[in-house]
Computed example of a mutant assay.
Amino acid sequence: MRRIVVVGASAAGLAAAETLRREGYDGTLTLIGDEPHLPYDRPPLSKQFLTGQWESGELALRPTAELDALGLDLRLGSAAAGLFPATRVVRLADGSAVPYDGLIIATGVRPRRLPGRDAHVLRTLDDALTLRDRLGPGRRLVVVGAGFLGAEAAATASALGSDVTLLEPAPVPLAAAVGTEVGRILSQAHLERGVGLRTGVMVSEVTESGVLLADGEVVEGDEVLVAIGSRPNTEWLTGSGLTVGDGVVCDAYCEAAAGVYAAGDLARWYNPLFDVSMRIEHRTNAAEQGMAAARNLLAAPQARKPFAPLPYFWSDQYDMKIQAYGYLRNHDEVAVVEGDLAERRFVVAYRVGDRLTGALAVGMPPKALRQWRQAIAVRAAWRDAVPIRP
């Protein structure tokens, strides 16, 4: 294998490229990215960068010297436009063709948008730069979507002195991800900081003066940030023969087709630890999956290892540090196992069937989740892991 192409120059793609070199691959290694910037970290965009604490240079995933040492054929600012597995070629938007013997797809996701006037989204460095310039005292920001990204952005904008209105269609923000009780407690923090949180409202479109709700009301704002989820960047794979369904569908080894692997936010793979197909949009998973895909691409078929991670994510909102391990969605039960919800210092555990599948902590030290992480990793039974409550 003398030519490997990695499409996507963010956390997953860079981790894949570094792993290929670390594992001894010394052939041509092409890293393709649609943005003109060198690989950078995205989570700080809604936090340290948006507040102005960090500048662009502090977002870099690696110093330039370390990137140079990888000996990459770096193609930045040119998106992938087509994949042709029969001839093993990736076609770029500029018309050039890049041949490969092995391929790792890590093209990530893009924000969903709303009809009407263009609104802010928060995915790229350029998105964050534009929004940052529009925040501050006296500015009115409407955030559509109170998921983790919307909640973080609302918290940051509020701290900068902006007047923030946070709109959410669900009755309780984040309930689908973390449970109703936890979602309600996290939402309370917005109200205490003066953010105008409104739930159960549907936004029809973005207008010149704010947003139009489904009932005809206009919520006014100087700026509108849409944070209503994302779509995997898979359109360029149309006609490639790869299976696409809410992401690039892979097996447990992250393989999508012969010699083609996927990693990061757009990869939907079978995770044997939870016996479920999943797609994870978390920074830690992106890096781990990029490494796993690279190793499996280089390995002999019998030496490949299933990618069976214990997902981890974190979020910073106001003075709350939120951390979680496992797969929290589609849970059957949530139980408080330490601390107190009302004090916003607690650990909750999640059950699916008869198994412990996740744990989330708010306002607790990292060691508070250590035993839960281990229990999830060994597929502990719920009755053994969670004490019976009176």
Rank of each mutant, 00 (worst) to 15 (best):
W54M: 07
G77W: 00
A170R: 15
A375W: 09
D163A: 15
D265P: 05
A300K: 15
R193C: 13
A157F: 02
L360Y: 03
P44R: 13
P309D: 06
L273W: 05
I322D: 00
F346Y: 11
P137E: 15
L167Q: 04
V98Y: 00
A380D: 06
T30W: 06
Y270E: 08
P232Y: 02
R344L: 14
N285I: 00
R198I: 14
E235G: 10
Y40G: 01
E205N: 11
R279V: 03
G363M: 05
L61Y: 00
S240G: 00
R198K: 14
G52S: 11
I322W: 00
C254E: 10
N296I: 07
C254V: 01
V386P: 03
T64V: 14
S204M: 03
Y25P: 08
P365Y: 07
G147S: 01
V224I: 11
G183T: 04
R22E: 12
E208R: 11
V144D: 04
F148T: 08
P36V: 07
G194P: 07
G57D: 08
T30E: 04
A308C: 01
D251C: 12
P63E: 07
D68E: 14
A335E: 15
A308D: 06
T156V: 13
A385N: 05
T87L: 14
Q302C: 10
Q371V: 15
A11G: 05
Q53K: 15
W54H: 03
F49Y: 15
G216Y: 13
G138K: 00
A146H: 05
S204Q: 15
L341V: 12
G290V: 03
T238H: 15
G24L: 11
V337G: 04
R279Y: 02
G241H: 07
A324E: 08
G241V: 05
I388P: 09
L341M: 10
V172C: 06
L160G: 10
L114S: 09
L59W: 07
A368S: 12
V164E: 11
T199H: 10
